[in-house]
Simulated assay, not measured.
Amino acid sequence: MPQEDWVAPAGSWASSAARRRNMQAIRSRDTKPEQLVRRLVHAQGLRYRVSAKPLPDFRRTADMVFRPTKVAVFIDGCYWHGCPEHYVAPKTNPGYWSDKVARNIARDRDTDRQLEEAGWTVLRFWEHEAPETSANEIVLTVNRLRHKPEDDTGPS
Rank of each mutant, 00 (worst) to 15 (best):
L40I: 02
S156Y: 10
V73P: 07
F66C: 00
E4W: 05
N104C: 10
K32A: 13
L40K: 06
N136Q: 15
C83V: 00
E4F: 07
A62Q: 04
E4T: 05
L40E: 06
F66A: 00
K91A: 14
R49W: 11
R107Y: 08
E116Y: 02
D76T: 10
E4L: 04
I138R: 13
V50E: 00
D76G: 00
A89K: 14
A118F: 03
V122W: 00
E85Q: 15
P68C: 05
D108V: 12
S134P: 04
S156H: 09
L123H: 02
E129P: 08
A135F: 07
T92H: 13
Y96K: 10
R146D: 02
E127S: 13
N136K: 14
S15C: 06
G77Y: 13
M1H: 06
W126M: 11
L36F: 06
E34H: 00
Q44M: 03
D57R: 14
M64P: 05
T69A: 04
P90Q: 11
W120C: 02
D63K: 04
Y87H: 04
M23C: 13
L140A: 11
Q114S: 02
G95V: 14
P90C: 05
P155K: 09
K100F: 07
W13T: 10
C78D: 15
R38N: 01
L36N: 08
A10P: 06
F58K: 01
F58H: 12
K53P: 07
R49D: 11
Q44N: 04
I75M: 14
L40T: 03
E137S: 08
V88Y: 02
K100V: 02
R21E: 03
F58L: 07
M23I: 14
R107M: 14
R146V: 01
P90I: 03
V142L: 02
A102C: 05
A118W: 00
P56Q: 12
E132N: 08
R113L: 09
G95T: 13
L46H: 06
H147D: 07
V71K: 03
D152Q: 09
V7F: 01
L145P: 02
Q24L: 15
S15A: 06
P84N: 09
E4R: 09
